[in-house]
């Protein structure tokens, strides 16, 4: 499903290498060009693609020159496949373990991100996810800015049968966040999710507000919620959020559409932060766990590459 299109293109570039009897520079460059074009069309950051291209080329060349034995042509092609696969995996895998909520204690999760990227929807999905796994879960609506924000939380939390907290009259999100977390902590909720307003790096005040909320609720994990369709602004925005809110995980939303999520992947690379879930629809159960290697193999639609890696 997800990224299948991109996978097809990368696959066909690699298999065109497979068909040629030998691999010379020209063929390798042609295949790499095809792969990079596919990545660029999927919104992977332009600079990131350039560096991936040169890393793959260097690695492959070193490997090819190392084993100059003509008889092992097939293995030499596998080198190309494996290098590409590894580089793609490392694009989405910063090698950092995300926070794991623990039962019997309060785990505070705070959602931040750009306007309209899916924070509020994702907060409810997360609450449902953890609730199903036996955590007592709730949501604090600390968005006092967006028109109808509390109604949105109230309605979707009610639908999901999840406890919620918010206010129609209090205008300071820091106060609401602190009150809500305090209340739910006392009531021994195990997953307390704090939803915040959308914001962007160009508005200093909005970022300062986010830092204040964070200071007030001391989240165990802050999550950046990012829309799969974001283009070249992903890097700068996610870097700024990382600096101000030090998020420890990313959730990429709207993966049920046609978007390949390359911008979101670039945010992973820019902030060295793992993706933990994908949002795959507007309904409360449309949330999938994310894992780098299965994700890339699925994207490439290739069991055989997976096999190579396990060798």
């Amino acid at each position: 499903m997800v990224l299948a299109d991109l996978g097809r293109r990368i696959n066909s570039a690699i298999s065109s290498l497979n068909r040629s009897p030998t691999i010379d520079d020209k063929q390798l460059d042609a295949a790499l060009k095809e792969i990079c074009t596919a990545l660029l069309e999927s919104d992977v950051n332009v600079k990131l693609v350039a560096s991936l291209r040169s890393r793959v080329r260097t690695k492959v060349k070193a490997a090819l020159e190392g084993g100059a034995d003509k008889a092992k042509e097939a293995q030499r092609r596998n080198v190309v496949q494996k290098t590409v696969f590894d580089e793609l995996v490392s694009l989405v895998n910063p090698g950092v373990e995300p926070y794991k909520p623990k039962k019997g204690q309060s785990n505070i999760i705070m959602a931040v991100g750009l306007q309209g990227n899916g924070k509020t929807t994702t907060c409810t999905k997360l609450a449902v996810y953890y609730q199903k796994r036996g955590f007592k879960s709730c949501i604090v609506c600390a968005d006092t800015f967006r028109a109808g924000a509390f109604d949105q939380t109230r309605q979707s939390a009610t639908k999901a049968k999840v406890a919620y907290f918010g206010s129609y009259t209090e205008t300071d999100p820091v106060v609401i966040a602190a009150q809500g977390v305090e209340k739910f902590r006392k009531e021994r909720f195990e997953i307390i999710i704090v939803d915040t307003s959308g914001r962007h790096k160009q508005e200093k005040d909005l970022f300062a507000e986010m830092e204040q909320i964070s200071a007030a609720v001391k989240p165990d994990m802050t999550i950046l919620v990012l829309d799969a369709s974001i283009g070249q602004a992903a890097e700068a925005q996610s870097r700024a959020f990382k600096e101000a809110a030090d998020f420890g995980a990313i959730i990429v939303t709207k993966m049920d559409g046609h978007a390949k999520g390359g911008g979101a992947i670039s945010a992973v690379a820019a902030t060295q932060t793992p993706i933990i879930f994908l949002g795959t629809g507007e309904h409360l159960s449309d949330l999938e766990r994310f894992a780098p290697e299965p994700f890339i193999s699925k994207m490439l639609g290739m069991g055989d590459i997976q096999g190579l890696v396990e060798q």
Partner: peptide, 16 residues
């Protein structure tokens, strides 16, 4: 008529 809070969102805007 689908998204939670969509109607209230517009109501707040119209009131403003």
């Amino acid at each position: 008529t689908f998204r939670s809070g969509a109607v209230e969102q517009l109501r707040v805007h119209v009131r403003n």
